[in-house]
């Protein structure tokens, strides 16, 4: 920092000198900068097709401008509104039901005294994170299979009817969120465990001298100490409510469950990639990206306000 400040006091000639001095560092940066320009920024120019009547033959430049026509079409479409609503619903339920699980898990793991048992539990609960979505979906399909899946066998044994869960819209969110918890809750607890490790042990020692129970130590020391971490991660999630796991949803949903399963990004995938209506799908993408950016900025403001530490 001080070197940069010093040099900024000097005149323009020192800028060239600095660049000449550090040319190797610029050379190291160049490939990555080119990569970001080609694969991240160049597509941003392609966002213009959201405002054009795209034709493959005329190309991106040659296609005529149509202003906000595609956006009007989208907002008149029930399917687009359904996708927005489903995105928000899945995010909301994940926020409420799935995000507390890793916190509870971290608190529980932290209470284990035996190192061996703790390591074993951690190894087991982190494992599903490394299983791919395709395999998770494959296992979910096998478990829920109407003919011979384990869940339906159990239901039948209890005298209940067999259900083809994956074709029932009312079950989709439960299946999606439940299997997401299975896959990620363990791994997500790592960050909370790291925060717990940072708590000053003297707090626990003095609480013990005062005769506090373990439950009291959790609720009065551990939980308040990791509250900033919880708050920041909550705000990050809030900023990302439009980002739902479409790669996973695509594996699990079917036309019969679109009513609850079709989210903005799966809608974009179907209309754009599968249906080749690039302009309409790009318009939906523009809407998604702009709203997402606003949400992230608001979330960061909130985070600064509450915890005095920005997310970025």
């Amino acid at each position: 920092m001080s070197a940069a400040r010093q040099s900024s006091i000097l005149k323009d000639s020192s800028l060239l000198q600095d660049i000449r001095r550090d040319w190797m560092l610029y050379a190291m940066l160049l490939p990555a900068v080119i990569w970001f320009a080609v694969f991240m920024y160049q597509p941003m120019a392609g966002l213009q097709i959201a405002f054009k009547q795209y034709s493959v033959f005329k190309g991106m430049q040659g296609s005529p401008w149509v202003g906000f026509d595609h956006f009007v079409t989208l907002f008149q479409s029930d399917f687009f509104w359904r996708a927005i609503l489903n995105t928000l619903m899945i995010s909301f339920y994940s926020l409420v039901l799935a995000s507390p699980v890793p916190i509870i898990l971290a608190l529980m793991i932290n209470e284990v005294q035996s190192t061996g048992f703790r390591k074993t539990v951690q190894t087991a609960v982190y494992l599903p994170h490394f299983v791919s979505f395709v395999i998770v979906a494959g296992i979910v399909i096998a478990l829920l299979s109407p003919g011979n899946g384990l869940v339906n066998n159990a239901l039948e044994a209890l005298g209940l009817d067999r259900t083809y869960f994956l074709t029932r819209p009312e079950w989709f969110r439960t299946i999606y969120i439940g299997s997401s918890i299975w896959k990620e809750a363990g791994f997500d607890s790592i960050i909370y465990l790291a925060a717990i490790m940072g708590i000053n042990p003297a707090l626990y020692e003095s609480a013990q001298i005062d005769g506090a129970t373990r439950w009291q130590m959790i609720t009065r020391i551990t939980l308040p100490s990791i509250l900033p971490t919880i708050a920041v991660l909550f705000v990050i999630r809030l900023g990302n409510v439009l980002e739902v796991g479409y790669e996973y949803i695509i594996l699990l949903y079917q036309p019969t469950t679109y009513d609850t399963a079709d989210v903005i990004s799966t809608y974009i995938y179907r209309v754009g990639i599968q249906g080749a209506r690039y302009d309409i799908a790009a318009a939906a993408g523009v809407f998604n990206a702009v709203v997402a950016l606003i949400l992230v900025l608001v979330a960061n403001k909130l985070s600064r306000h509450f915890t005095r530490t920005g997310v970025f």
């Binding site: 974009i268 754009g272 790009a282 950016l293």
Partner: peptide, 25 residues
């Protein structure tokens, strides 16, 4: 820290975490 333009290039890269063109583009 001595690298000129470090903040600008850092932002150029980090910005793609918050805004990206999306699937179709």
């Amino acid at each position: 820290a001595r690298l000129r333009g470090r903040r600008v290039i850092g932002f150029f890269i980090a910005f793609t975490m918050w805004f990206h063109a999306g699937m179709i583009p």
